[in-house]
Write a protein that binds this DNA or RNA. Structure first.
Length: 433
RNA sequence: UCCUCAGUAGCUCAAUGGUAGAGCAUUCGGCUGUUAACCGAAGGGUUGUAGGUUCGAAUCCUACCUGAGGAGCCA
């Protein structure tokens, strides 16, 4: 007997196959049963007619939601079935029937976020969560394909680090044998600067940790970030890469995951406009736009979430805001040659209120300038000795950025909350399951 | 860390100082094309915890616990 996946069931129209999955739902209509099966690739409706297969009818009639089973039957196209195909069930092999005294907790009705998050290990079985996780997979594949295709080399950076990368944000601390404290990385960027000087163009891609007590739908304490870095590059190279990168990713999801976007009810017209070039506006221009739109922002201040939403809704694709006041950016940002009070940093803001998805820019390549910035920020120079070495031995202008995967997935999927963009979200008051 | 809101059946919610209820889920019965199927019945409660006010508290007050949304900070 041929084993088939539900997602590819169309290839077996008219044939008898076996599928391996779980009971998603069971509808009854007298002497007819309509069990629905899922296997992670899709959902298919089965039909059981009592007078044709009485033994199968009696077995299926008493099955409970999420019972694991192998099902055999003849596949045929049927417009009445959700998904377009139906299976005339001729045999079932039940692996584990869930007992009615302790039924599967997640029903087809509404549930609250607390209930679902406590059962995230089960929640991910639902079609909507399946679709999000498949899109996340596609985003990650596109990230790799795009950067690999552009000649970047993946060089992963450490997760245990000896000190703060940027000195300001709160870090997760742990004991590291006799070496004292270690911290979970909040960015691979400083190491990327070393690897890009070794290999030209590199990127790292892995989990990142922030111990800030942020409690919003835009924050996780553990999230995944991809960070490309380029030697012999400046802020314009970063912006060029950003727009190619983001449009490539969105294009890939539209091309390969249309069915999943449909499951989510995503408005595709909001994604189809994400094509190069992206608008590029200076921080000065952004402040002017915000003031016109009624924001209380003053020049020199950083954008709040409301400001990012206001800027994002000005455009039909992500907008790149560049040249921020140096005072509100990280210590390693290269100053603008024409206006030293500005840093050559760029943020990419997604439309529809999704806010910042990318932050990056050009790094300081001059030893003395970097040393003075480290001291100005009250950071210990000895901890940055290796980082300063990069400016002693063949320093070149270099630039890069970091992109938060969950924020991009959240935007592409049109999610209400970042927590659905990762299988097991880590948040301020939640570390289970 | 601060501000706001919410905790009632397994789940989603109602009951606004006077006998704790509905839908779904579960079990049983009915229905030969269901689309979160539908119809009928049954079981299911220390109203987050601890105090207080009152003849009487799910409801009012205080503290605590848990969660959510937002601010700040950031991807």
């Amino acid at each position: 007997m041929t084993t088939a996946t539900i997602g590819g069931i169309g290839k077996f129209d008219g044939q008898e196959v076996t599928i391996q999955g779980w009971l998603y739902n069971l509808r009854e209509a007298g002497k007819l049963l309509f069990p629905q099966f899922r296997d992670g690739t899709g959902v298919i409706q089965g039909v059981v007619v009592k007078k044709e297969t009485p033994e199968v009818f009696e077995t299926v009639k008493h099955l409970t939601q999420e019972t694991s089973m192998r099902v055999t039957g003849k596949v045929r196209a049927d417009a009445r079935a959700p998904g377009g195909y139906e299976m005339q069930v001729t045999g079932v092999e039940v692996l584990q029937r869930i007992p009615p005294e302790d039924p599967y907790p997640i029903t087809h009705k509404e549930h609250g976020p607390d209930f679902l998050l406590e059962r995230r290990h089960l929640w991910i079985r639902t079609p909507r969560q399946n679709a999000i996780l498949r899109i996340r997979h596609e985003v990650i594949r596109a990230v790799r394909d795009c950067l690999d295709g552009e000649g970047f080399i993946l060089v992963d950076t450490p997760i245990f680090t000896p000190a703060a990368c940027e000195g300001t944000t709160t870090l997760f601390e742990c004991d590291y044998f006799d070496e004292g404290k270690a911290y979970l990385t909040q960015s691979g960027q400083l190491y990327n600067e070393a690897t890009s000087a070794a290999l030209g163009k590199t990127y790292c891609f892995g989990p990142t940790f922030r111990a800030e007590k942020s409690k919003t739908r835009r924050h996780l304490t553990e999230f995944w970030m991809v960070e490309p870095e380029m030697s012999y590059a400046g802020i314009d190279d970063v912006m060029d890469l950003c727009e190619r990168f983001v449009s490539f990713i969105v294009g890939r999801v539209l091309e390969r995951r249309a069915a999943d976007l449909a499951t989510l009810g995503r408005d595709l017209s909001k994604l189809q406009t994400v094509l190069t070039p992206f608008p590029r506006i200076s921080y000065d221009d952004a402040v002017a736009i915000l003031k016109r739109k009624g924001s209380a922002i003053e020049w020199g201040g950083d954008f709040g979430n409301a400001d990012e939403t206001l800027l994002g809704e000005e455009f039909d694709r992500p907008v790149m805001v560049h040249r921020y006041p140096a005072a509100i950016k990280a210590f390693y940002m290269q100053p603008d040659a024409d206006r030293p009070e500005l840093a050559l940093g760029v943020d990419v803001l997604a439309p529809e209120g999704y806010g910042e998805i990318i932050g990056g820019g050009q790094r300081i390549h001059d030893y003395d300038l970097l040393m003075s910035r480290i001291k100005e920020h009250g950071l210990p120079p000895e901890a940055f000795a290796w980082y300063l070495d990069l400016r002693k031995y063949g320093s070149v202008p270099h630039a890069g950025f970091g992109m938060g995967i969950e924020r991009v997935v959240s935007w592409i999927c049109g999610l209400e909350h970042l927590r659905e963009a990762i299988a097991f979200p880590r948040m301020l008051y939640r570390i289970y399951p």
